[in-house]
Design a binder for these strands. Structure first.
Lengths: 270, 270
DNA sequence: CCCAAGTCAATCATTTTCAATCAAAAGCCG
DNA sequence: CGGCTTTTGATTGAAAATGATTGACTTGGG
């Protein structure tokens, strides 16, 4: 077996299991320990893997940051005040006992806080949302089945026949990467798939976006504007954008961005 | 077991129960006290946990209040050493990369710790198991969809057409309330429903029960003995019980109850 | 107070892993 | 084929990790 071949085998093995021993690699490649060590060394220098005592380790930048600490690492803090106000307004649309669908995302995640004092039936494809509601509220929580994608924090089934099809709600809430004349936009194909699965399972589609999203354009169009019933955003939205939405028949709810919410519903529970 | 693996297992255990003893960790990792102490020291320096007298405790103040109180409030500590050994033996049956099904329960939950150093495809109906594996391992995690029952800690769909039907595994692991000549028994109808849904989706059915369960009789018979391929239990099982199981064609795996497991890793190479 | 059990740090022997060295093997080129 | 370089495998001593032991220390209970 030649060097290139060994490197391929080693790379494959170290990707598969995140940690392989030198001994394992010897068995796998048929080479001697000395050779495997040399291979590991050169591959470490090439940053294809990390050399650790006893073997080699996959070179994932963050081995465990998946769901671990905070639910959504990056986006979480951006425009957090706006997101909270928007989410609070969204929850205010709902009545206790109602079934709703919450699509996973950083903005919709903020709904968990006002929801803590509610008793609703929440269907979601977001693991963190389900987790938080379970632990901090008395809402009924329903979850879609499938593979849990760590990066996007959503649960997605490759099949069409999952429980999602059996759940119908009055309202569905979702965020978006961007909004333009063409409609709702996302960047991640996985999110598009997840969202399209949920759209259509609710009477009303309600989109939660802070006003910065009106400037964003992404590659994937999720659905046209007239599919949206209501958009909740903050008061930094421009007039012509509001006019465009109005023309498309979208109900617009604008929450004051700087100040806190007047009303008390968002306050925390007993 | 290598250093990285041990650290993963230790982290997993310390997240589960917020406090673990050095002895527990020895049993879980198969390493000596000295090594475990050294591990705890380095992990303490890395701020992955706090070193305390007798063992280690989780850093996070109180994130793990579980779903309804703690994950499994009552049963958790009963026969915990046996459960750990049984769960470890169960995981040793598996090879990395294999798909398995884990039915929710306190015994099967203990599988998460040895699984922390593995990379398998795990399908489960247990929210705590999915949560723990997501946060403390690199296994692929798949979840059944449906309503989350807080009391039983399982996810159950009232429909027959959920993703469960689309997942097939080499082995399925489950616990039980009791075992008798009539077969597997449960008390909670909800659990019966959940378990029957999963049985049949795997080639082999493996039951994890500590020996006290052979004395239990419950009201609901889940399935006959001959449906079971393997039972893993501790060495306090009585001879006539073992004979009964043997007569029913069940493979019996007995783990030493007092002592720790010697070796952890089921060898893997191709 | 003392004792017993448990826990811990330090130490040392053993095992494992590693890097360096060198000779054999394999490729390369004319 | 004969020189030449490169790669490989084995050996060896060094370095690191591990496990067991010992004695000091802490804890909890008479």
């Amino acid at each position: 077996m030649h060097e290139k071949d060994r490197h391929r085998v080693i790379l494959s093995a170290v990707q598969d299991r995140s940690l392989v021993t030198v001994i394992d690699l010897c068995a796998l490649t048929g080479a001697s320990e000395a050779t495997v060590r040399r291979d590991i060394n050169t591959m470490d220098e090439r940053k294809q893997l990390r050399r650790v005592r006893g073997g080699a380790e996959a070179l994932t930048t963050a081995p465990f940051v998946g769901l671990a600490g905070r639910p959504f690492s990056v986006n979480e803090t951006m425009n957090s005040a706006e997101k909270q106000a928007i989410a609070a307004a969204a929850v205010e649309l709902c009545q206790d006992g109602e079934p709703i669908i919450i699509n996973g995302g950083t903005t919709t995640f903020q709904m968990v806080h006002p929801l803590a004092s509610r008793r609703m039936q929440v269907f979601t494809n977001s693991f963190p949302i389900a987790e938080h509601l379970l632990k901090n509220s008395r809402n009924t929580v329903m979850l879609s089945g499938g593979i849990i994608y760590r990066e996007q924090n959503i649960i997605l089934s490759p099949f069409d026949n999952d429980v999602t099809r059996n759940f119908y709600a009055k309202r569905m809430f979702m965020g978006a990467q961007g909004i333009g004349p063409l409609g709702l936009m996302e960047q991640d194909p996985l999110l598009v798939q997840a969202e399209q699965k949920l759209i259509g399972q609710a009477e009303e589609l309600i989109v939660l976006v802070d006003s910065s999203k009106f400037a964003n354009r992404s590659s994937l169009v999720l659905c046209p504007l007239d599919r949206i019933d209501t958009i909740i955003t903050d008061d930094k939205i421009e007039d012509r954008t509001a006019a465009m939405l109005d023309a498309a028949g979208v109900t617009l709810i604008v929450v004051p961005s700087g100040a806190a919410q007047k009303d008390g519903v968002a306050a925390l529970p007993a």
